[in-house]
């Protein structure tokens, strides 16, 4: 199988790292060659964060090339646009319908671009918009937004549901397991193009 590429973007503190851990653990368990690249530390201080995941029979580069991501999973709208050039022409965009203003916008020096979602939908045929925060709140824990998005991704990629649920059980602290599985299932149901 030729390598598949999943590009995750978000804002430091949104739980992209745990999402990456769940996804890659599943892929390694399924027997794929897997590589993942993250940039740490200084970038985490509220900055833009990305995780790149590649899997297949044999994977060389840990980095995804521009225009080659099968899926761009954006935890925040602005971070969807920022990395959209990584998406393949027929790639799938999963975007969290969440606006997190960077410092320059918070202090009124720059403007958060209007109607991002509409414009993304217009340009990118396969776009799934998810209110992951709203769903996570309904599940009882706002921080489970990452598992909602992992659920959407897993369904879109056709990964076995049981494999994901069992990994979530392993990596999430025990008292949050049920909430996270519920969030994952809600996402799974939305993974339809």
């Amino acid at each position: 199988m030729a390598a598949k590429n999943i590009f995750i973007s978000g804002v430091g503190g949104q739980g992209t790292i745990l999402a990456g851990k769940v996804i890659t653990t599943v892929l390694v368990n399924l027997g794929y060659d897997v590589k993942m690249s993250e940039v740490h530390e200084m970038a985490q201080r509220g900055g833009s964060v990305i995780t790149q995941i590649r899997y297949g029979d044999k994977v060389y580069s840990p980095l995804i090339e521009k225009g080659k991501a099968d899926v761009l999973l954006a935890f925040e709208k602005l971070e969807a646009v920022r990395y959209v050039e990584y998406l393949a022409p027929k790639g799938i965009l999963i975007v969290n319908d969440l606006e997190m203003s960077p410092a320059s916008v918070l202090i009124g020096k720059e403007e958060y671009p209007a109607d991002i979602v509409e414009r993304l939908k217009e340009k990118i045929e396969n776009t799934i918009v998810v209110d992951a925060v709203g769903i996570a709140k309904e599940c009882g824990e706002i921080r489970s937004q990452n598992m909602v998005l992992v659920g959407v991704l897993a369904k879109v990629m056709g990964w076995p549901k049981d494999a994901l649920i069992s990994v979530i059980r392993d990596v999430v602290p025990e008292k949050y397991v049920d909430v996270n599985i519920m969030a994952f299932e809600r996402g799974w149901d939305m993974g339809v193009i």
Binding site: R45, G47, S48, S104
Partner: peptide, 8 residues
């Protein structure tokens, strides 16, 4: 796009 640099 507005950039999102690291902040304190």
């Amino acid at each position: 796009l507005p950039s999102r640099p690291p902040v304190l």
